[in-house]
């Protein structure tokens, strides 16, 4: 899995932090940044939950391989 932030969409609500604070941070420009680009296991579940929770749908979860 790969986590990508759409910086055009991200408004810095930090909803991602609320469910996946080990996967995301908010930078000085108030934009989310992935701390882990390829989360695995429990962190991958948290990243998916963060994508669901994002009010602006700014988190893209790319499933790599099959």
């Amino acid at each position: 899995m790969r986590v990508v932030i759409d910086e055009e969409k991200c408004c810095g609500y930090a909803a991602c932090i609320s469910v996946a604070e080990r996967v995301f941070a908010i930078d000085a420009d108030n934009i989310a940044v992935p701390l882990i680009e390829h989360p695995e296991g429990e962190l991958a579940d948290q990243a998916r939950a963060a994508a669901e929770a994002c009010p602006t749908d700014a988190i893209l979860i790319l499933d790599e391989g099959a």
Binding site: G12, Y13, A14, A15, I17, S18, V19, E21, A25, I26, N30
Partner: peptide
């Protein structure tokens, strides 16, 4: 204080 707030969500 978005990030400091959200740490208390759980």
């Amino acid at each position: 204080a978005a990030a400091p707030l959200m740490r208390h969500r759980a």
